[in-house]
């Protein structure tokens, strides 16, 4: 009856050249262990992570690394081309050092990418788990209410909310969060509904566990993966939307450095010095791509092989 994978002990001395018996238990590396091992072997994921790390470090360490003052303007040095002495990436329409402003701008832009998504992840997952686990009419009520938000294109909704709340950093963060919550709820709800119907959740209910511990132990772990992947895909969307809000004058106000806002103000220079005008856009592009590629790699690493 017993399933014995190791050789019988008595057989070992009879074979002098035999490999030693495996006596240590086979330890599984754990779920996150396998995900990490998978990611480490993925060169694209490593590259994307390195790019993101570089951008984050540059933004965080801007006060120490940046070559100039981001607010110091100069009428003589306006719109210098790339490679100018003292200004490697040139200057903007007010003669401010562009490299400096791009580094400082990363702080706000990355913040606007991460904060709304993180907040939407927390709230959206909670609402979605609740709706999916309870099901029935409660689920119907919650989901149909959120569908109203979902009916608007995200850009339009963000503009409408930010416009109603008025310009400013915190208002645009709030507007973006409100845009993302329904989307995260949808994913969370559909995954929870699927997981909830599985036999292991039924078995947990048979054990008399409370709804809270069933969700915590059996549901959360199995729904977090897909939600996490979806949310990480939203990071780049959030950055682009935030840039859009700033571009429209609904986000950060000048002279604060922010990539979207810089794109807006440098727009006037597009005929004079197109390379410089494209730089903030390029930053947004690079960051978005890095987020997306990394999210993609994490998703494929998180898939359970059965």
């Amino acid at each position: 009856m017993k399933i014995a994978l190791s050789m019988p002990v008595s057989a070992a001395p009879a074979l002098p050249g035999a490999a030693p018996l495996i006596t240590t238990p086979i330890v599984s590396p754990g779920y996150w262990g396998t995900v990490w091992a998978q990611l480490r072997r993925d060169p694209i994921a490593i590259a994307a992570a390195a790019v993101l790390l570089l951008l984050v470090m540059a933004a965080l360490l801007a006060p120490w690394l940046a070559p100039a003052d981001p607010y110091k303007a100069s009428m003589i040095k306006r719109l210098l081309p790339m490679g100018s002495a003292g200004h490697w990436l040139g200057t903007d329409e007010l003669g401010r050092d562009l490299l400096t402003r791009l580094m400082y701008g990363g702080r706000l832009s990355l913040l606007m990418g991460v904060v709304p998504v993180a907040a939407a992840f927390v709230f959206g997952t909670s609402i979605g788990l609740f709706a999916g686990y309870v099901g029935g009419r409660v689920n119907m009520l919650i989901m149909r209410t959120l569908d109203i938000f979902y009916a608007f294109p995200s850009v339009l909704l963000a503009v409408a909310i930010a416009g109603a709340l008025g310009p400013g950093l915190s208002n645009s963060l709030l507007a973006l969060t409100l845009v993302f919550v329904p989307q995260v709820v949808r994913v969370a709800e559909s995954v929870t509904t699927q997981v909830r119907a599985l036999d292991y959740v039924e078995a947990a209910r048979m054990s008399g566990a409370s709804a809270f511990s069933i969700i915590r132990v059996h549901v959360l772990g199995n729904v977090l993966g897909p939600i996490f992947v979806y949310a990480s895909g939203l990071l780049s969307v959030s950055m682009i939307l935030a840039s859009g809000l700033s571009f429209l004058g609904l986000g950060v106000k000048p002279p604060e450095p922010e990539w979207g806002l810089m794109l807006n103000t440098l727009r006037s220079a597009i005929y004079l010095n197109p390379w410089i005008a494209a730089l903030p856009g390029a930053m947004i592009f690079i960051t978005s791509i890095a987020f997306n590629v990394l999210a993609d790699s994490v998703r494929s690493a998180m898939e359970l092989r059965t």
Partner: peptide
Amino acid sequence: ASLNPRLTVAQTIAFGPQVH
């Protein structure tokens, strides 16, 4: 389907007694 894919075998068995 009746085993949680994210729990080890021992964790799955121990869950019931632990909630009690």
